[in-house]
Design a protein around this nucleic acid. Structure first.
Lengths: 141, 141
DNA sequence: CTTTCATCTTGGAATCATTCTAAATTGATA
DNA sequence: TATCAATTTAGAATGATTCCAAGATGAAAG
């Protein structure tokens, strides 16, 4: 879906900053952090401020157009693919991959402790191809 | 298991501060944050510093005696129950409950992207009994 | 094509959780 | 009882994120 249309449909003003952020996000499977979105968008749009990036990401998240992942302990990661799916994080370099597979995650009535369950998400932990190789660590933080 | 024995077995010095922290953690199912551990332990041990709480939690986590949960977006939460299990968080008040149930979470070979998978954890989202009731919000942050 | 105004953007300050530091203290072993 | 690595501590430092107040600007209305 085009950036312009997304904004219009969810009632957001179409500003050049948002266009740039949405363009960067569209189809992006790197699960970037806010800082990474800022770094990437700054190249095309040098005047943009970090606050705008945070604001826009929050607006998109609030309207269900962007997933905010908590899988990385040190920062939030974003995923423009809002279809239900799961994630796999490399515990060494923090690279995140999508796991598009259906699991039966129903919780037996007796274990719900009175909660109403509204969603779920699986975090898989592992080592990416790069980090599996000894020496040459790909750790990025 | 008694605090004293835990320390000895994992090669940690037995200090009064650690005793207090381990005592508070033992059997605790509230999934406290570091700040909450500090607040609770401070009552019994007023002189303890936050740094010690963070240090001790990290030591226990590193030795596999404590799980560090990333399910709460704003802070890390800790769980002294290290048996594999999952969690359910109330998206309103952030209360966390344990879900002790086995799920088949095997990832089809073709979807592993070359990663070696070492673990998993399911985050369930929902509303706790308190927050389901209208009005009187139990939000704690 | 102007006016209008709620929505946006912005730089910088502020906040929050967490980590780091360097010095003083102290379990635990010899 | 001496010794020393492991600990504790207060406070500074860091990193991510949020807040703020003021100026700018899409877009609906006329």
């Amino acid at each position: 879906m085009k950036a312009a249309r997304i904004c219009k449909e969810i009632g957001l003003k179409l500003t050049p900053q948002r266009m740039a952020i949405l363009d960067y996000l569209e189809g992006n499977t790197s699960h970037p952090s806010a800082e990474e979105v800022y770094a990437a968008v700054s190249k095309r749009f040098p005047a943009i401020s970090v606050a705008t990036v945070y604001n826009t990401l929050a607006s998109l998240r609030d309207r269900g157009c962007l997933l905010e992942l908590t899988i990385d302990p040190s920062k939030k990661r974003y995923d423009p693919d809002t279809r239900p799916h799961h994630h796999l994080i490399c515990t060494s370099c923090k690279r995140v991959a999508d796991i598009e597979f259906k699991y039966d995650l129903s919780v037996p009535e007796g274990l719900r402790m009175g909660y109403e369950i509204t969603g779920n998400h699986i975090e898989f932990y592992g080592l990416c191809p790069e980090c599996k190789k000894p020496r040459r660590s790909g750790a990025r933080r």
